[in-house]
């Protein structure tokens, strides 16, 4: 391997890693606020990519109908629960948030699907189309068991992943898609040619990580999320509603997933079931960061991308094995280095 190849592989690894960074940060955000290891996270990214591709082909994307159906179920659950607790006055508000808003979104996407919009509009539509999905699924699937153990929540999340992958097959078909490139531009750094697409992915990952940092440190909502993540009970005592914090976490998480889906769709072929491996690689990155620490997660995700890229050069058949095997020393080190607090054991 000469220097040229090493640089090319590095660029490739950083590109893939940048996508994992977005996904991993979203996963950590959702995990810290809701204690759910949101396995179907990759599926959300894939849904965004497939929706974008459907919009390009001027088909009505299956996501529109799916969001409407999920919204109907969530509304039914929310309204029933409100009425049973004698909070009839809160029903109109629930209807607005759980039914009207998602329906407005899916209606817009549905109505817009037949027209040939410029690319930024299509991308915005694709991202908006999948945004309501995770918060609504949270309402349906996770909120009724919000206080269950992390393990139970994770097993439910795995089941949800299989459901979403199946629904993806139903909505988008079995064939893979590849969307039009976001940009044809190419940059040269010395001898290395970097495609505009690659640069865009890295810039997007960096700027969204920065935005998230600002959000957590400089807005009240961000601080409330942070507080919920640190201690749910304590947050509740200072009048932060964990449910609301959870919904916001899912919204931001889906935004990150949707963006990474849109970014990766022109680079590779996306299938309805590609989300699992994407999510798994991002999850490895998140674990390297300890599932709590954002800079650590970002570094971990980049590392996974680089490792995958070099592994594919040295021994392509063992690429996955090499990446996942990297988890073993990390876990060993973490279990030795971190001391468990009383609170965690109690749980």
């Amino acid at each position: 391997m000469d220097l040229d190849i090493a640089t090319l592989l590095m660029v490739d690894g950083i590109t893939t890693g940048a996508v994992y960074v977005l996904l991993a940060i979203g996963m950590v955000l959702i995990f810290t606020v809701t204690r759910v290891i949101f396995v179907p996270f990759g599926d959300i990214a894939v849904y965004a990519a497939l929706t974008l591709s459907a919009l390009e082909a001027k088909h009505a994307p299956g996501t529109a109908a799916l969001v409407a159906a999920v919204a109907a179920v969530a509304t039914l659950m929310e309204v029933t629960s409100l009425l049973r607790h004698g909070k009839a006055r809160a029903v109109p508000r629930a209807l607005a948030f759980y039914l009207a808003l998602p329906l407005a979104v899916s209606g817009t996407v549905w109505a817009a699907s037949g027209t040939d919009w410029p690319m930024p509009v299509r991308i915005a539509l694709a991202i908006v189309a999948v945004l309501p999905l995770a918060p609504l699924l949270d309402r349906i699937v996770f909120r009724p068991v919000a206080d269950a153990s992390v393990l139970l929540l994770m097993i439910i999340a795995v089941a949800l992943h299989f459901a979403l992958a199946g629904i993806g097959l139903l909505c988008f078909g079995a064939e893979g898609v590849r969307t039009q490139p976001l940009t044809e531009a190419a940059l040269t750094f010395g001898d290395v040619l970097v495609s505009g697409q690659t640069a865009l992915i890295v810039v997007a990952a960096a700027s969204f990580s920065l935005l998230l940092f600002l959000f957590f440190n400089h807005t009240l909502t961000g601080k409330a999320l942070h507080a919920t993540a640190v201690n749910r009970l304590g947050a509740r005592l200072v009048a932060i509603r964990p449910e609301r914090a959870g919904t916001i976490a899912y919204l931001i998480g889906s935004l990150l997933a949707a963006i990474s889906g849109v970014l990766i769709a022109p680079v590779t072929t996306i299938f309805y079931d590609s989300g699992f491996l994407l999510g798994l690689f991002a999850f490895v990155g998140a674990i390297i960061g300890g599932l709590t620490n954002y800079p650590g997660t970002a570094l971990g995700a980049l590392l996974v991308g680089l490792l995958g890229s070099y592994a594919s050069f040295f021994s392509s058949s063992f690429k996955e094995v090499i990446v996942f095997a990297a988890l073993v020393p990390v876990l060993l080190w973490r279990s030795i280095a971190t001391t468990h607090s009383e609170e965690e054991i109690e749980e």
């Binding site: 190849i5 090319l8 592989l9 490739d12 590109t15 893939t16 996508v19 990766i264 680079v267 590779t268 299938f271 079931d273 590609s274 699992f276 491996l277 994407l278 890229s309 070099y310 592994a311 594919s312 050069f313 040295f314 392509s316 058949s317 690429k319 996955e320």
Partner: peptide, 20 residues
């Protein structure tokens, strides 16, 4: 004899090896 999986997002490494 380079290999990749259906869900891979990039085959740059393998292709570099092929072209070498």
């Amino acid at each position: 004899d380079q290999r990749y999986t259906r869900t891979d997002s990039s085959v740059t490494g393998q292709i570099l090896k092929v072209l070498a």
